[in-house]
């Protein structure tokens, strides 16, 4: 890992944490939200909804940051998010940074 130390100003950062609301029974399983979520925090639930589709659920240990894209693109108005809380910069963000900078984006270029 490139950076291991928590930045000195980590305490001062305010990172929005979104809370996702999924109205499962409205979902028709188009998977737009799962596919287009920029943070890739959604996956299809193994359960069926009343219509017989697999609605999205949050992946465990993932965090929504309330960008609202899912809300915009959902054709069935079945998903939306609100800012529930704010948090500080933590080690999790370091790990995520490492994944992002060594992951798909940089990989292609090098």
């Amino acid at each position: 890992m490139k950076f291991w130390r928590l930045p000195l100003d980590a305490e001062e950062q305010i990172i929005p944490v979104g809370r996702l609301f999924i109205i499962a029974d409205r979902c028709k399983g188009c998977n737009f939200c799962i596919e287009f979520c920029p943070n890739k925090v959604l996956e299809a639930s193994p359960d069926f909804n009343r219509k017989g589709y697999h609605p999205p659920v949050m992946k465990p240990n993932h965090e929504c940051n309330n960008c609202g894209l899912c809300e915009v693109i959902c054709p069935e108005f079945a998903i939306y998010s609100t800012v529930e809380e704010k948090r500080r910069f933590t080690e999790v963000d370091l790990v995520r940074y490492e994944e992002m900078s060594s992951g798909e984006g940089k990989g292609e270029q090098e």
Partner: peptide, 10 residues
């Protein structure tokens, strides 16, 4: 938010 490379992640 992410560490600033210029500041060595400080």
């Amino acid at each position: 938010h992410m560490p600033n490379e210029f500041d060595c992640g400080l």
